[in-house]
């Protein structure tokens, strides 16, 4: 099993090396160099910046009119006669729309890295459990002990507490994987040159979609009955409740996606904004105020980073907790529902 991941890693390395003229390319000079576009900084990029050591152009893969185009960088794609640059976006030269954008972006790279770390940690661990270490005997080593704490927590306090004794075993793998994947993605935002892939709404939306599918797939009869024909209320109320309950099916995973996304994105914007206060003070009250107050703002930033490290774990926990809760709510079978109706 591991050799597949070794090969994937080699492919990833080849992609990175294949992106030629990567280092030392000139950064695009804007007309107003002093302005920083914060929302532009925190969004998905096709250039992996290692400021001040240079940057890495990432390959663009685009499907347009049934034909797949590969380019080693955005510039190369813009120089070709099929695509042109419109601001920062790559658009087809003849004014159409790109069917599918499969380009490697920074968020995708960090998603892969997190997935790789998750695999590299948990497949060896799963092997150890299969051999019986930790199952029949005590877990051995710091590494094993550390992650067993999280495993047991997810299994007992998240899955068993919310889904119930009867069905919880089936969902532990998904919940544990989601927890560790989200945690690693969030923590990637704290390392230098890293970004949190969860600050991208498409990543969190796909995770929430998985939860939605798991929830509805395993939903009990009572769950669907509550959605379309709410028990125990007069008939006219049922017609009012039907659309509300139906929309409620979709708002739950939607809120799940937006919550994780907004929390991670706001953390990044907050750090940019607080660092920006130094320059704001410098512009308003002279350079001395800028230098003087920078101590306060840097201290604030450090504080926000500590909060972010905590929020990374908390948001991952909330995500799996609510996933488990939704699954548990949908799977619940009401023995007393009939009594209510009568």
């Amino acid at each position: 099993m591991l050799h597949i991941f070794r090969r994937l890693f080699v492919v990833l390395l080849l992609v990175v090396i294949g992106a030629h003229n990567a280092f030392g390319s000139e950064a695009a000079n804007n007309e107003d160099e002093n302005q920083v576009d914060i929302l532009g900084e925190v969004q998905n990029h096709y250039v992996w910046s290692f400021a001040p050591f240079g940057e890495l152009e990432l390959p663009r893969i685009l499907l347009y009119k049934g034909h797949l185009y590969f380019y080693s960088s955005t510039e190369e794609a813009a120089e070709s006669d099929v695509f042109t640059l419109n601001g920062h976006d790559l658009v087809p030269a003849d004014g159409g729309h790109v069917t599918l954008d499969l380009s490697i972006s920074t968020h995708l790279i960090f998603f892969w890295l997190s997935a790789l770390i998750t695999f590299l940690i948990f497949i060896p661990l799963a092997r150890r459990y299969k051999e019986g270490i930790g199952k029949e005997t005590e877990p051995k080593g710091i590494f094993h002990n550390l992650f067993e704490v999280f495993f047991v927590f997810i299994r007992d306090d998240v899955a068993k507490a919310n889904i119930g004794e009867k069905h919880y075993r089936k969902f532990v793998p998904y919940l544990a994987t989601a927890f560790f994947l989200i945690t690693f993605m969030n923590l990637m935002g704290l390392i230098p040159w890293g970004t949190a892939a969860t600050a991208d709404v498409s990543v969190t939306a796909s995770l929430a979609l998985l939860t939605f599918v798991f929830t509805q797939w395993n939903a009990s009869k009572d769950h669907w009955k509550e959605v379309f024909w709410f028990p125990g209320v007069p008939t006219w109320v049922r017609f009012i409740l039907m659309p509300i309950e139906f929309v409620g099916l979709f708002t739950k995973p939607f809120a799940l996606a937006i919550r994780l996304f907004a929390n991670m994105l706001s953390g990044e914007i907050l750090i940019f904004s607080i660092i920006g206060m130094i320059f704001l003070f410098g512009n308003m009250f002279g350079p001395l105020a800028g230098y003087g107050s920078s101590v306060i703002w840097i201290a604030f930033t450090v504080f926000i980073f500590v909060i972010k490290a905590f929020v990374s774990l908390l948001q991952a926990y909330i995500f799996v907790m609510l996933s488990a809760l939704f699954i548990g709510m949908a799977m619940e079978e009401h023995e007393h529902a009939v009594e209510h109706a009568s």
Binding site: D157, A161, A255, R259, A262, M321, L322
Partner: peptide
């Protein structure tokens, strides 16, 4: 604490609709 986190997260979700 568990139910506090759950209900806080649900309220936060509604606020996030507004923010969106």
């Amino acid at each position: 604490r568990t139910s506090m986190i759950i209900s806080a997260a649900l309220i936060e979700g509604i606020a996030l609709f507004g923010e969106a």
